[in-house]
């Protein structure tokens, strides 16, 4: 069984392991098969901007470079916030206790989900039935999820269905909505002028 995480709702704490819900294993998956005129399977490659050099998938690498395009050893780099201050490392969710904050259904709608995990209570002191009680009254919890120690954790929402508890991780987006703060301009009915001066004789042009 996977290593458990300790969660704290503010009143009670409980341990649970998490298992990633793989979409392919739930719904199946589709592969695209590409063949040439002879029915032979094709590979994918890339054509460079010189128009003649072909490279295969996996033939490129990402390098960190400085302003002069000289490669920089990743071990020598340091993380800073955008204002230049040293970034603080956020510990992994597996280290210490993860504090759950009360959340709202809106948080769920604002979350751009990248992964879904299901809580697993096998061989743990607390049962799923006990923990499901923390979600009675359609409660949601928010927290910062960090699989590994990192400088920027993922936003996460924990919610329960009738029989299971899930964690949705991703990033919380904020939206700016337009609203009618000013009174709409009233538009009069289009005037139906019958003034003969307004009528142009196109035949004169």
């Amino acid at each position: 069984m996977a290593k458990p995480i300790t969660f704290n709702t503010g009143e009670k704490s409980f341990q649970a392991a998490i298992n990633k819900v793989d979409r392919d294993k739930v719904y199946g998956y589709i592969e695209e098969s590409i063949t040439d005129a002879n029915g032979e399977i094709c590979l994918t490659g890339n054509l460079l901007d010189d128009g003649s050099t072909i490279i295969l998938s996996g033939s490129t690498a990402l390098k960190t470079v400085d302003e002069n395009n000289n490669e920089v050893d990743k071990k020598s780099l340091k993380a800073v916030y955008m204002d230049g201050k040293d970034a603080i490392l956020i510990p992994s969710s597996y280290e210490g206790e993860v504090k759950l904050e009360a959340a709202h259904a809106d948080d769920l709608y604002n979350l751009e989900v990248t992964a879904v995990y299901q809580l697993d209570f096998e061989n743990l002191s607390v049962s799923k039935t006990d923990v499901l009680k923390y979600f009675e009254g359609e409660k949601y919890y928010r927290f910062v999820f960090n699989y590994r120690a990192d400088y920027e954790g993922a936003d996460a929402v924990m919610l329960a269905t009738e029989n299971d508890i899930f964690i949705l991780t991703g990033r919380m987006l904020s939206f700016e909505y337009l609203e009618n703060k000013t009174k709409p301009i009233s538009i009069d009915e289009e005037s139906t002028s019958t003034n003969e001066d307004d009528n142009m004789d196109f035949g004169m042009l």
Partner: peptide
């Protein structure tokens, strides 16, 4: 969503990621 953190050289200079070619087909 803009990132909160960036990686800099030990003397605080900005870095960026560059894609490089390992080899041709």
């Amino acid at each position: 969503k803009k990132p909160l953190v960036k990686m800099v050289t030990p003397d605080g200079k900005d870095t960026h990621t560059q894609r490089v070619l390992k080899g041709k087909a």
